[in-house]
Design a protein around this nucleic acid. Structure first.
Lengths: 229, 229
DNA sequence: CCCTGTCAGATTGTATTCAAAATACATAAT
DNA sequence: ATTATGTATTTTGAATACAATCTGACAGGG
């Protein structure tokens, strides 16, 4: 627990985030989930009406998302959701792979035992989700695992970068379904990764994570080819 | 020549960049060069007066730099130049190393022969700068080389990410001087990297680039320890 | 003397307004 | 009919205006 205020229970620090922050989260989510389609024009006026705010925070938000690569600007012609070609998505995977591999390697060196234990717990939860066939739950735990590895890496640069790269990869998830075979494979890969981290074998962890991303991409390619509807 | 307008000579498309673009470039440079010190408060009003623009584009610019990690915001307390601890800078190097290594590996697979030839030319120029003792010129060519490798990698995600990571690394350059010994070493390393790319040996290129960054960091650490003034 | 509370001034966050450019539409010319 | 030109409308880019929050000084009480 981070804050303590007297003996009162459930005192939680009130937080009032700036509008651009809140807006960025919502728009980011909408883009990643595909609710805003690639290439779709983003009208500032429309957004103002939807969110009930003025153009200033909207414009600041769009600048942020633009830097993150989710939104593109055309001179005097406003913003649009960045188009992603299949190539763009494929490009994102090796980069993500390199970064996650590094995170894993560093985590082997820097993780606390508590963090490694927690990884084990999450892994079990994830397997439970798999057995239950709960895809949404699986993805949630999966993200928590990657997040924990990231934290354990104790590197201040990685989070920002991975965040910047992951958006495209996460977009991909919403464009093609996870096949059952691939799902089982992924679970198995995670099992190995966990073992490698527990053994604090940096090189192995690194290689496994890179392969994990490569396999993810291969599965995605296949799913795309089959899903020509 | 990209445009042709009748027979008139030297007709060049006029370009008017948005203010936030121009501003971002200038502020980014100022921060990287250390003209704006880490931790320094950034007053919007002051910037308005300095640049002769209103607060709107200034604020958009600050949001951009904030996403890039160069500027930090405190709730209702405005922006300041992001503090970098020695640890932060050290953290940036392995990340940068992983990304550059990937860029090199991909470049080996995807570079055109023309690009590789051009790398050779740049390498010669860089050696010339070294022999002349022209540090500024050296850094300029050095950046062009890394830029070219990046282009040759034909990956759409890498440029944005490397850009995001490189700022910290480039900041470091302005905080400690390049020793003559390290300079000579770096030239030699570049020579090897070039050879590996010419041989299109992806694995080797990758390893050399990662080491290059590691050595850069080691040299930096040493320079810092000596420079206790 | 230190702590607390209040208030003026300054600064940031957001809304509104003004200006410039792009699009849409109507009209004229070939 | 089709292209080109001129005008109106819309939308973006930037500036200004207003509101909320913070800073710091100072007064009064413990």
């Amino acid at each position: 627990m981070r804050h303590r205020a007297g003996s009162a229970a459930n005192i939680v620090p009130i937080e009032r985030r700036p509008l651009h922050d809140e807006l960025a989260d919502q728009l980011r989510r909408a883009i990643i989930h595909g609710e805003l389609r690639p290439g779709a024009k983003i009208s500032e006026k429309d957004l103002c009406e939807q969110f009930g705010v003025s153009r200033t925070p909207i414009r600041e938000t769009l600048k942020i998302l633009s830097t993150e690569g989710l939104v593109s600007f055309a001179q005097n012609r406003g913003a649009s959701v960045t188009e992603v070609t299949a190539q763009d998505i494929m490009d994102a995977f090796p980069v993500m792979g390199a970064l996650e591999a590094l995170a894993g390697e560093l985590a082997c060196a820097n993780a606390t035992q508590a963090q490694i234990d927690r990884l084990g717990v999450l892994q079990s939860k994830m397997v439970a989700m798999f057995k239950r066939g709960d895809r949404r739950g699986y993805f949630r735990i999966n993200e928590q695992i990657h997040q924990l590895i990231l934290e354990a890496s104790c590197n201040s640069t990685l989070p920002r970068l991975i965040r910047a790269a992951s958006a495209q990869v996460r977009r991909a998830r919403y464009m093609a379904n996870l096949s059952n075979e691939r799902w089982a494979e992924a679970i198995e890969e995670h099992e190995q990764i966990l073992k490698a981290i527990e053994a604090r074998d940096g090189k192995l962890t690194s290689r496994l994570l890179r392969n994990h991303l490569t396999n993810k991409l291969e599965a995605l390619k296949k799913a795309f080819l089959e899903q020509v509807d």
